[in-house]
């Protein structure tokens, strides 16, 4: 038991001394995770939309070539950034840009580190989101597109008003997934010197070697962040689904609200109250008629 008492002592000592540093770390983690997830969504939506532009063999060659080129480029982007570790991507971009431009273009100073971190996490998220968005779009019933086309909507109008709102709703769990992954995975940005929550831990234990107590603080901290995130996302999903109930609007007392349009007294040839039809049925029953086929 005294081990636990010691741990609590160490934690309160660390927290008491370094609380501002930890909180700054949490703040930086959250800023990058939120901003990069949003930017990643924008990239993902762009790629997903570009990838699903309809094409047919009857289109003119220029359009077909452009669309094919776009699809190939999106494909390469997705495969490269999904298929390599983010920690390497960070190094690659942070040091690669100055290397190729002889330092003309570089991520200078603290703001450079921020920009590089945001950039790397965003394009990484975008690569994952591109596939999610594509899946979200093709999962929407083709009937929705046909319904929109049939009332004269163009492809862009159909996308903006009908398909994307539904696709967005369907991929919110994926966005949430990416957000939670980003909260945790921004920690690899320490390789380019970005001081987020995990880098704070490295800095602190470098001074006092209290690895385990600090790691315990980090574990609890990350868990709180991700739990809060998933709670908020659930709430958002529920909010977007809207109410399960609806109100009947009945300004006009003459309109029946029972969902029936038939006038009871008059009837139509298609309902049972229509007198000629009823007589026919009586005739059929009397003189025999096979029922079944309509």
């Amino acid at each position: 038991m005294n081990k636990f008492a010691k741990l609590i002592d160490d934690i309160s000592l660390l927290w008491g001394t370094y609380m501002p540093a930890y909180l700054t770390g949490i703040r930086n983690t959250l800023i990058v995770a939120i901003a990069a997830t949003l930017a990643g969504c924008v990239i993902g939506f762009l790629c997903g939309i570009l990838n699903t532009i309809p094409h047919s063999k009857t289109d003119n060659p220029v359009k077909r070539f452009v669309l094919a080129a776009i699809r190939v480029m999106v494909r390469i982007y997705v495969e490269v950034f999904r298929g390599t570790p983010m920690v390497l991507q960070a190094v690659f971009i942070y040091y690669g840009l100055p290397y190729f431009t002889d330092g003309a273009v570089a991520f200078k100073g603290n703001s450079g580190i921020w920009i590089a971190s945001l950039l790397v996490v965003s394009i990484n998220t975008g690569a994952y989101m591109a596939e999610s968005v594509r899946g979200g779009i093709i999962s929407i019933d083709p009937g929705q597109t046909e319904g929109a086309k049939a009332i004269g909507m163009t492809h862009v109008q159909t996308m903006m008003n009908v398909i994307l709102p539904q696709a967005l709703r369907n991929i919110i769990p994926q966005i949430g997934n990416n957000f939670i992954i980003n909260i945790k995975d921004t920690s690899v940005m320490f390789v380019i010197g970005f001081v987020e929550f995990f880098a704070t831990h490295r800095n602190i234990v470098g001074n006092n070697l209290k690895y385990f107590p600090s790691a315990a603080i980090e574990m609890v901290g990350y868990l709180c962040l991700t739990l809060a995130a998933s709670f908020l996302l659930r709430w958002l999903e529920k909010h977007l689904d809207g109410s399960d109930n609806y109100e009947l609007v009945n300004d006009d007392r003459l309109v029946m609200a029972a969902g029936t349009y038939n006038y009871p007294d008059k009837g139509t040839p298609f309902d049972e109250r229509h007198k000629p039809s009823r007589d026919q049925v009586i005739q059929d029953v009397k003189f025999g008629k096979q029922r079944g086929d309509r």
């Binding site: 019933d141 929705q144 046909e146 319904g147 049939a150 009332i151 008003n161 539904q166």
Partner: peptide
């Protein structure tokens, strides 16, 4: 052209959103 020619589908195709 389609805006002059309405269509009603077997599967309704109302916009779910």
């Amino acid at each position: 052209y389609r805006s002059h020619v309405g269509m009603v589908f077997q599967s309704f195709n109302l916009f779910n959103n």
